[in-house]
């Protein structure tokens, strides 16, 4: 798992462990061939390796759905929860243990349908965690039902004559909530940018929301076909405070916009457009306070201090003996 390196004096073994990409992987993912989840997993593992995140100090939390199997494939701590509720679980973890690196993997059904209330409030809590919305615009694990992000008119098992509603836009929704601090969009077919966006999201202290548009070869095989074939249908967002585009990417994807991630109004305009697909950092505000920091963590509490406090608190309810000196008899 960890590689031990001999240091120059040949007599001690370094306690510094270095982790390879493989060290972060566990088991063989059981996603379909060509599923976008593979690309996200690879990008995340690469990021963990680059940052050498300690395995035991990192927790991946998920809900239910194809994408929520994610924590099972990471050799870190993981919490595969219940449908729609990864956010409150992750919040509880982060509140008690701000020392842990917390990631959330959630799908478009998990986050934007059954768990919507938690998603909205998680943005408002702005706790320090990196969120990957695996958005394939379809329910996969339950076998092809329309999701809130499915395009209007999509024929599925529950909408055989085409879905009746316009899709919900997760980027616009996130950008509309108080305390939003980091919003980005990535696509599974440009893995280098996916990696760079995950890195920037993780560096941000706060609730970093990344929507990853991903392909579902089983149930929506043609959904992003045009965009994957034609680089003109992707709009890259670049800025000195946002993404710096690697030269080979910049050469392929010529459709680019200089976008300041501090500009929420332009971010909202970009978010509302879907063709070309914007990719990059839409919004970043490092100044939003984190909910977990509202708790005083400097105090040291022991059984003794708790005991002393309890005695003091019971004094307030003590009616006999009546004199305060005798209350603690």
């Amino acid at each position: 798992m960890s590689t031990c390196t001999l240091i120059p004096d040949w007599c001690r073994i370094s306690e510094e462990a270095t982790h390879s990409i493989e060290d972060y992987g566990r088991g063989v993912p059981r996603w379909c061939l060509g599923c976008g989840d593979h690309a996200i997993l690879a990008a995340v593992q690469r990021y963990c390796r680059d940052e050498q995140l300690p395995l035991e100090k990192t927790v991946f939390v998920s809900g239910i759905g194809c994408s929520s199997r994610f924590p099972h494939y990471m050799e870190t701590y993981g919490f595969h929860g219940i449908h729609g509720r990864p956010f409150p679980i992750a919040e509880g973890i982060k509140m008690v243990r701000p020392d842990l690196n917390v990631f959330v993997s959630t799908g478009d059904g998990d986050c934007c349908s059954i768990g919507t209330a938690h998603w909205i409030h998680a943005i408002r809590y702005n706790m320090d965690m990196t969120v990957l919305l695996h958005d394939n615009e379809i329910y996969g694990l339950t076998k092809k039902q329309a999701s809130p992000t499915s395009p209007a008119g999509l024929k599925t098992n529950t909408t055989p004559r085409g879905s009746r509603l316009n899709p919900l836009n997760p980027l616009s929704a996130t950008l509309g909530v108080a305390n939003v601090s980091f919003v980005a969009q990535a696509v599974d077919w440009i893995p280098d940018l996916l990696h760079d966006i995950i890195r920037m999201a993780s560096l941000h202290k706060g609730f970093s929301f990344i929507r990853v548009l991903q392909r579902c070869p089983a149930y929506l095989p043609t959904e992003f076909e045009a965009q994957t074939r034609n680089p003109e249908r992707v709009l890259l967002l670049k800025h000195q405070d946002g993404l710096t585009l690697p030269p080979e990417i910049a050469q392929t994807y010529r459709n680019q916009e200089e976008h300041d991630p501090g500009d929420i109004h332009r971010a909202r305009e970009i978010a509302s457009a879907s063709d070309p697909i914007p990719v990059g950092i839409l919004y970043h505000n490092p100044a939003v306070p984190c909910y977990e920091d509202s708790v005083d963590r400097d105090r040291i509490d022991t059984a003794e201090t708790t005991h002393a406090f309890l005695e003091q608190e019971m004094d307030k309810f003590t009616i006999w003996p009546t004199s305060s000196e005798a209350r603690r008899a």
């Binding site: 919490f79 929860g81 509720r85 409150p88 679980i89 919040e91 509140m95 008690v96 209330a117 938690h118």
Partner: peptide, 21 residues
């Protein structure tokens, strides 16, 4: 923690317990 709903309150508590205590 005053959560956004009862389910969140329970899940938050479970997350907190999972992380220790």
């Amino acid at each position: 923690h005053q959560a956004e709903d009862e389910i969140a309150a329970c899940c938050f508590a479970i997350g907190a317990s999972y992380a220790g205590g």
